[in-house]
Design a protein around this nucleic acid. Sequence first.
DNA 1: ATCCTGATCA
DNA 2: TGATCTGGAT
Length: 232
Amino acid sequence: MRRGKRQEYDRFRVENLKDTLLFICNRLAEHFGPLHWWPADSPFEVVIGAFLTQNTAWRNVELAIAALKRAVPLTPQAICGLERQRLEELIRPAGFFRQKAQRLQLFSGDLLEHYQGDLDAMLAGPLPQVRRYLLEFKGVGPETADSILLYAAHRPSFVVDAYTRRLLQRYGILQGGESYEQIRTLFMENLPLQTDLFNEYHALIVEQCKTFCRKRPLCDSCPLQPHCAVIL
DNA sequence: ATCCTGATCA
DNA sequence: TGATCTGGAT
């Protein structure tokens, strides 16, 4: 009987992606409460954090940003004005410090040269166009571009990361071989295009995967039980 | 498929 | 001591 209900729900789920995606979001929101991302004092600080957090624990990013803030104001002018090696030393705790220092200065330089340092101006215009512009920067892949669009520009561009893949795959929505763009499109075609929703949803997925849906999952206390299809 | 990088935790 | 962390470039 319990088994029958489970099968029935599985069929319902596959045919109603929109409802399922909202259901997951609501469940996580009930469990974790509001997370109010992205923790930063300015949109440009969000950009800095988006570069620094690539394949890096957020804790280490905090150390780097704190050191950077003690040294200079977080503006494109100041980032460009730093000696490369000096910038490398300041952001060292975030790892990959050489490539990240170079890429931060390339981005800041373009922002100064073409937009007089006005980030809002750079991020204005049609979403797909701005996204393509961001993706041209060295060090900006799809996740970093969408993070900047969502958390610095407050635009409804869904952020997909390794956590998102893992959660959706275990839940039974993804099979495993899907591309970044496919997964992003899945969210954006099945959810209302609302910045606040995308903002909270991605933050909740990160929190969920750090807490329960880890590589070694903790299904016992997971807020998505018994709906998840994870096979251990 | 491999490299870039440092701090934390199992 | 190794795996992992809000990836991206070559």
